[in-house]
Amino acid sequence: MTLVVENLSKSYGDTNVFSDISFALEKGEILCIRGKSGQGKTTLLRCLNNLETLDKGSIKINNRYLCKEVNGKVNYASQQELKVIRQDIGFVFQSFNLFPHMTVKENLLLAPKFLKKLSNDEIEKKADELILKLDLSTKSDNYPYQLSGGQKQRVAIARACMLSPSILCFDEPTSALDEETMGQISKIIKELAAQGIAIIIVTHDSAFVEEIGGKVITLKN
């Protein structure tokens, strides 16, 4: 299993956001998480990416525990381990969070060049391939402010893919897109899944859920 999630619970103070969520994902599987606004979809993704800490539950990515519940207490992996585990899971933010002072290409190169898991030549080659695949060739030297919403989203996807994650999370990927670009993004996501990346999509867009297929979980209170 690429991702195993067991009994996740999270509250902010007195307000319970979600409780007892469990699911598992294989290589290349697609999971859609639905739910009304405020049901904790974004929070769940943030917990999976360790941007938020859980109150209960365990998360296992490629057989390594990001966090593990032992006797009712959640133990997180050490900073050193987290750095490694985290590279297996990518996050495409709803607002993309591209680096505004860097070109498209520089956005892609920053993290891999810092992490140095590949040689510079290999990193450049990989960036060029992703830029081509995501139809960004004419934009590679442009800055984020010069891009449309759909283009920014593809840059965010490419940037996440530079680290070759096993899992890729999307928060409301269709929120900023028209129908045509929606078709484009679902095609891209399906291609990523076909390459073996497990995909988690948070959305309240039913049409998109149908279009993309895959497992569906609905968050309810």
Binding site: N50, L51, I89, F93, N97, H101, F114, A160
Partner: peptide
């Protein structure tokens, strides 16, 4: 979001500050 983007990309705090935050 800029800090969080760096965090999910496994960048160190120092690198994040020098290359992403400080220039902005």
């Amino acid at each position: 979001g800029q800090f969080e983007a760096c965090q999910v990309l496994s960048l160190s705090k120092r690198f994040t500050f020098m290359k992403v935050i400080l220039p902005q």
